[in-house]
Design a protein around this nucleic acid. Structure first.
Length: 802
RNA sequence: GCAGGUAUGGCGGAACUGGCAGACGCGCUAGACUUAGGAUCUAGUGGAUUCUUCCGUGCAGGUUCAAGUCCUGUUACCUGCACCA
C-alpha cells in the first residue's frame, strides 16, 4: 500500500467534496474547535504544531461523525517581529516572506490531512482583516479606552523597540534575549487595568483548565488592602497602600518611589536636592533586571527637610526614597514597618532606622515577623494602644474602621496588571489609524478610509533613533487632518502582534463579511469557542488580551457573550529525543516533512497522539513511532480476514462496545494516548480471530479514522463501503459493555492469594464460598478465625483472618 | 521567596468514585521463517527468591479490611511570577 498516494487521493477527495465545510446557520448543533493559528515562520511547521493540531483535528472529525456542525478553522498570525526579522535577514519584503511561508505551512498542513475549513482562511496581514483590527482600535479610542501618554517603557536596544511588560518579562527581551532598559516614550495605551476585576470575575463563566485560570489570576494580581492618607509636616499629604494595616503602630518611616510622581511634587521642599536627584537618575539607568535581580540591596536616601506625621500617634516620621518601591503600583509610596516586612527590615538595617514590633510571637532582631507567618495563627497585637491584645484579624477590622471614621483611609483593591502598551516602533504591524494635527491634536481616522494600508516601500528596517520605519516615508506620513483639513501627520507606530490574535476567533465565525468584523447573527449561531487549545506559553498573555478585547466589545454591544472562549486547554511540548527543548543549535529538531515522507501522515499523527499525556511534555522517539507504524500495518493486514457480514461477530461484541465507550470518554478527557492504546488492543483482538465481518472492520476503521484518516478511508473503500467522512460514529450498547463472567482477585488480609471467575448473577455468599475453596486461599485461612469478609461486586474479595 | 505542577520497570506511559499496580507501546531475551534482518511471527520480560513467598508507585509517618490514589510532614525536579507594599 503506497501511503503517499492514498494520502494525496483522500486529501483531494475531502477538498473537492468540501467535506469539512462549516455552514453558519445549519440545523445541526454547532461545535467550534480552535487551535492557535501559527506565525508562519521560515522554518516551517514544528512537530509541536502537529501534536496539538492533530489532537484538535481528531476531536473535530469525531464530532462531525457524531453529527455536529463543526467549525475547525485555520489562519495566519503573520504580523510581528518574527516575520519582519525573517524578511530583513533574507532581504525580501515581509509581505512576500509571509506569502511564501504561508504557502509552506499550508502545504504541510494539507499533507497531514487536517480537516480545516479552508474557505475560512485568512491572515492578520490581509488588508480585509486588519481593516477591522484598526476599526476596533478606533472603537477603543472613541470609548476613551485608548490614550497616548509619555511613560517609562521597556526598551530593547537590540530590536530598537518598545516592549510590553509581558514581552519584557524577567528584564530581558522576549525576542532576542537582550537586557531591557527603561526609556521615556510617548505610547498608545489601552486601558486594560480598568478591566482587572471583570477579567477576574469572568473566569467563572469559563471552563478553562485550572492551571490556565491560575495563570490569569496571577497576571491580574489582585490584592486587597487599605489606602491611607499621611500628612506632611508644614502642609501637604500623600497616600500609601498597605495590605497590613494591623501593623500601623509599627511604622517608623515611609518610602516613596524614585520614578513616581510624588517625588516630583515634593522636590522643591527637599533640602538635599542633589543627592535625591542623583538617586533618581541612577534609578532611571537601571533596567528592570537591575532593580529586581542584581540589585536587591536596599539603596536609597532620606528626604531632608520633609517629615510625615504618623496618622494615629502624630509622631514625626522620616521619609526615604528607595527603588524597591515601584512608581506605577499602588500609590508609589509605602508605609514601612521593619519589624513585620522583610524588605522594610533590610532597608531599616541599611539606613539605621528604629523598629517597633507590634505583633507578638517571634523575635525580630534578625529578621521580620511577616504576615504569612502571623496570619491565622492567633497572634496578638502589642505596642498598639487600644488595640493591644486583639488578634491580628480583629485588629485589621478595628483599625481599618477607625481610620475610615477619621476620614483618612479607604478600602482599596490593587492589581499588578497595568495598561497595555499598544505601540511598536515597527514596520510590519497594523498601522494605528490616528492622525496628529497641530491644531486639533490627535484625531481618529474616518472609518470610511479604513483600512489604512501599509505603504509599499523598500526600506523597512528600524531606524537608529527608535522611531518606526514608517516615520521615514514622508508621502505616507503627511496627510490632512480629518477635522480641519489642515496639514497633519499620521501616527507612525504600529500595533503589537497581539492585536490581530485578540479577536481572530470571532472573524472565523464570519470571515467574508465586508461590512462588519463579524455579524451578530453568525456569532450568536456559533456562540463560543467550545474548545480552544494552544501552548502554555500563550495561556497567560494572549488569552488575557483576547479576553479583554472581547469584554470590551461585549460592553459596547458588538459580541453576544462576555467570554467568547469556553474551554481552554494547553498541550505539552514535544521535546527532542534527549529530553531537551527542540532547537537547531542542539541538533535535535525533527522535521514533520521527513517523517511524513518515510512513514506517512497517518503514522505521524497516530504517534503524536500516542506519545504521552497530552498536557505533559513528551520526548520524541523514532522507535515508538515505528511501533505505531506496526500498528497501522496490522490494521491493514486485517483486511485479509474480512468476510461478508453486516453484523458484529458475536465473539467481538463485548470488546467493540467497550472500546467505543472508552474512546468517547477519552475524547472528553483528552486522553488521546489511551484512545490509541484502546484501538491497539481492539486490533490485536481482531487479529486473534479466524475471520472478521465487514461490519467489525468498518467499526474499527471508523473509530481509528479521526486519528489516521487516510488509511482508514482507503481500507473502508476497499471493502466496498461509502466514505467514512459521510458516515457516522458507531453507537455502543451499555448492556453489551458488561462482561458476563469476569475474573476477580481474592485477598487474605489484604494480600492477593488467588483469583476466581464470577458471573453477574452470583450472590455474595456464592462468591465467598468460591473464594474459600481456592487452593491457595484455603492454605492461608486454614486454622484461623475469619473476622470479616468483604465482597466488592465485580472487583475484589478480601477475607480478614486472625 | 511566592504560587502551581510532577515523581510509577531499562524507556514513553496506563490504573474510572480507594479495590488484582505496571494496560498499550518501545527496548531487551529466546525461538521460528530466512542467504540475510534494522522485515515478520511465537513466547517471555518490575526486583529478589529457599519456587513459595517477600519487596515494590520520590522519602517518612498516618487513616482503612484494602492506599499510586485520601491525610500530615519532607525531598528533588519542572513551570510561572518575582522588592506588587
Amino acid at each position: 500500500m503506497n501511503f503517499n498516494e492514498i494520502e494525496k487521493k483522500w486529501q483531494k477527495y475531502w477538498l473537492d467534496n468540501k467535506s469539512f465545510e462549516a455552514v453558519t446557520g445549519s440545523d445541526k448543533e454547532p461545535y467550534y474547535i480552535l487551535v492557535e493559528f501559527p506565525y508562519p515562520s521560515g522554518s516551517g511547521l514544528h512537530v509541536g504544531h502537529v501534536r496539538s493540531y492533530t489532537a484538535q483535528d481528531a476531536k473535530a472529525r469525531m464530532m462531525r461523525l457524531k453529527g455536529y456542525n463543526v467549525l475547525y478553522p485555520m489562519g495566519w498570525d503573520a504580523f510581528g517581529a518574527p516575520a519582519e526579522q525573517y524578511a530583513i535577514k533574507n532581504h525580501i519584503h515581509p509581505k512576500d516572506a509571509v506569502k511564501e511561508n504561508i504557502k509552506t505551512f499550508k502545504n504541510q498542513m494539507m499533507s497531514l490531512g487536517f480537516s480545516f475549513d479552508w474557505d475560512r482562511e485568512f491572515s492578520t496581514t490581509d488588508p480585509e482583516y486588519y481593516k477591522w483590527t484598526q476599526w476596533q482600535f478606533l472603537e477603543f479610542y472613541k470609548h476613551g479606552m485608548a490614550y497616548k501618554e509619555k511613560v517609562p517603557v521597556n526598551w530593547c536596544p537590540n530590536c530598537k523597540s518598545v516592549l510590553s511588560n509581558e514581552d519584557a518579562a524577567g528584564g530581558v527581551c522576549e525576542r532576542c534575549g537582550e537586557q531591557v532598559i527603561q526609556k521615556e516614550k510617548s505610547q498608545w495605551m489601552l486601558k486594560m487595568s480598568e478591566y482587572s476585576e471583570d477579567l477576574l470575575k469572568g473566569l467563572d463563566d469559563t471552563h478553562f483548565a485550572p492551571k490556565v485560570k491560575l495563570g490569569q489570576i496571577n497576571w491580574i494580581g489582585k490584592s486587597t488592602g487599605v489606602e491611607l492618607d499621611v500628612d506632611i509636616v508644614d502642609g501637604g499629604k500623600f497616600s500609601v497602600f498597605t495590605t497590613c494595616i494591623e501593623t500601623i503602630y509599627g511604622i517608623t518611616f515611609f518610602v516613596i518611589a524614585p520614578d513616581g510622581k510624588l517625588i516630583k511634587e515634593l522636590l522643591p521642599r527637599v533640602k538635599n536636592k542633589e543627592e535625591v536627584l542623583n538617586y533618581i537618575e541612577e534609578t532611571k539607568k537601571k533596567s528592570n533586571m537591575d532593580r529586581t535581580e542584581l540589585n536587591k540591596g536596599k539603596t536609597g536616601c532620606i528626604l531632608e527637610g520633609i517629615e510625615a506625621i504618623h496618622p494615629i500617634t502624630k509622631k514625626r516620621v522620616p521619609i526615604f526614597l528607595g527603588d524597591f518601591v515601584l512608581g506605577d503600583y499602588g500609590t508609589g509610596a509605602v508605609m514601612a514597618v521593619p519589624s513585620h516586612d522583610q524588605r522594610d527590615f533590610e532597608y531599616a538595617k541599611a539606613h539605621n532606622i528604629e523598629m517597633i514590633q507590634v505583633i507578638e510571637g517571634k523575635d525580630t532582631t534578625s529578621s521580620a515577623f511577616e504576615k504569612q507567618d502571623y496570619l491565622n495563627t492567633g497572634a496578638k497585637l502589642i505596642n498598639s494602644e487600644e488595640f493591644n491584645g486583639l488578634t491580628v484579624e480583629e485588629a485589621k477590622e478595628k483599625i481599618t474602621e477607625k481610620l475610615i471614621n477619621m476620614g483618612i483611609a479607604r478600602k482599596v483593591n490593587n492589581y499588578k496588571m497595568r495598561d497595555w502598551i499598544f505601540s511598536r516602533q515597527r514596520f510590519w504591524g497594523e498601522p494605528i489609524p490616528m492622525i496628529h494635527c497641530d491644531k486639533c491634536g490627535w484625531v481618529a481616522m474616518d472609518e470610511k478610509d479604513l483600512p489604512l494600508l501599509l505603504p509599499d516601500v523598500a526600506n523597512y528596517e528600524p531606524t537608529e533613533d527608535g522611531e518606526s520605519p514608517l516615520a521615514n516615508i514622508s508621502d505616507w506620513v503627511n496627510t490632512k487632518c480629518p477635522k480641519c483639513n489642515g496639514p497633519a501627520k499620521r501616527e507612525t507606530d504600529t500595533m503589537p502582534n497581539w492585536a490581530g490574535s485578540s479577536w481572530y476567533f470571532l472573524r472565523f465565525m464570519d470571515p467574508k463579511n465586508t461590512h462588519e468584523f463579524a455579524s451578530m447573527s453568525a456569532m450568536k449561531y456559533w456562540n463560543k469557542v467550545n474548545w480552544y487549545n494552544g501552548g502554555m506559553e500563550h495561556t497567560a498573555r494572549h488569552l488575557l488580551y483576547a479576553r479583554f478585547w472581547v469584554q470590551f466589545l461585549y460592553n459596547i454591544g458588538l459580541v453576544p457573550n462576555k467570554e467568547m472562549i469556553d474551554v481552554r486547554v494547553s498541550h505539552g511540548m514535544v521535546l527532542g529525543s534527549n529530553n531537551e527543548k527542540m532547537s537547531k543549535s542542539k541538533g535535535n529538531v525533527i522535521n514533520p516533512d521527513d517523517i511524513i515522507k518515510e512513514y506517512g501522515a497517518d503514522v505521524l499523527r497516530t504517534y503524536e497522539m500516542f506519545m504521552g499525556d497530552y498536557e505533559q511534555d513528551a520526548p520524541w522517539s523514532t522507535e515508538t513511532l515505528k511501533g505505531c507504524k506496526r500498528f497501522i500495518d496490522k490494521v491493514i493486514k486485517l483486511k485479509d480476514k474480512v468476510v461478508d457480514g453486516n453484523e458484529i461477530s458475536k465473539s467481538l461484541e463485548k470488546i467493540i462496545n467497550k472500546s467505543i465507550k472508552k474512546i468517547e470518554l477519552d475524547y472528553d478527557n483528552m486522553s488521546y494516548n489511551t484512545i490509541v492504546s484502546t484501538l491497539m488492543i481492539l486490533t490485536n483482538t481482531y487479529l486473534e480471530q479466524e475471520k472478521i465481518t465487514k461490519e467489525d472492520y468498518r467499526i474499527l476503521l471508523t473509530l481509528l479514522n479521526p486519528i489516521a484518516p487516510h488509511v482508514t478511508e482507503e481500507l473502508n473503500e476497499m471493502i466496498g463501503n461509502t466514505p467514512i467522512v459521510k458516515s457516522s460514529w458507531p453507537k455502543y450498547d451499555e448492556e453489551k459493555t458488561i462482561d458476563d463472567t469476569i475474573e476477580i482477585g481474592v485477598q487474605v488480609n489484604g494480600k492477593l492469594r488467588g483469583s476466581i471467575k464470577v458471573t453477574n448473577d452470583m450472590s455474595d455468599d456464592e462468591v465467598i464460598n468460591l473464594s474459600k475453596n481456592q487452593e491457595n486461599v484455603k492454605k492461608h485461612i486454614e486454622g484461623k478465625e475469619i473476622i470479616k469478609t468483604i465482597v466488592i461486586k465485580r472487583r475484589i474479595v478480601n477475607i480478614v483472618v486472625k
